[in-house]
């Protein structure tokens, strides 16, 4: 196509007359609202930034409301975990003696249980005191093998 390059350039140098203002006004009238709608939808980059920041502002109130409601919930129910499953009850009833009352720091040689004194065992066993008192009692049983 190089043989026609000169004539192509010469033709391209010729510029058609632009539409008259009257004709452009006619087209504007014919377009009506369609022309304005396309203006609103296509905006400058600065306008796009503005609209994005406006969208961000719209998200702020719901986020604040959610945060406030979470704070309120944790304030009302501070000791309960709302989101974890409940574990089985591990508390010890107050009517039962705690294990610490059975455990003595000092060993009682007369006691059959290690770490529990004879007196403590007597207090909690409910059995006859004589059985635990040993040979000193009036109705002490005979020792095995004797």
């Amino acid at each position: 196509m190089s043989e026609f390059e000169d004539i192509e350039k010469e033709l391209q140098a010729l510029q058609p007359k632009p539409p008259t203002n009257a004709f452009t006004a006619r087209v504007a009238d014919a377009l009506g609202d369609s022309g304005d709608i396309s203006l609103r939808r296509v905006s400058s980059p600065h306008g796009v930034k503005k609209s994005r920041s406006k969208k961000l502002y719209l998200f702020i109130p719901p986020v604040l409301a959610i945060a406030a409601s979470l704070v309120w919930i944790f304030y009302i129910f501070p000791s309960q975990s709302l989101f974890l499953p409940k574990s089985p009850d591990t508390t010890i009833p107050e009517s039962q003696p705690s294990l610490s009352t059975f455990v003595s720091a000092e060993d009682d040689e007369a006691s059959p249980l290690h770490g529990v004194s004879l007196q403590e065992l007597q207090a909690h066993s409910g059995g006859p005191d004589q059985w635990l008192a040993g040979p000193a009692g009036p109705a002490a049983p005979n020792p095995p093998g004797g």
């Binding site: 539409p19 452009t24 087209v27 504007a28 377009l31 022309g35 304005d36 396309s38 203006l39 296509v42 400058s44 306008g47």
Partner: peptide, 11 residues
């Protein structure tokens, strides 16, 4: 702010 409709520049 540019208020010219987009069709005008196209046209």
């Amino acid at each position: 702010m540019n208020t010219e409709p987009i069709w005008k520049s196209w046209f």
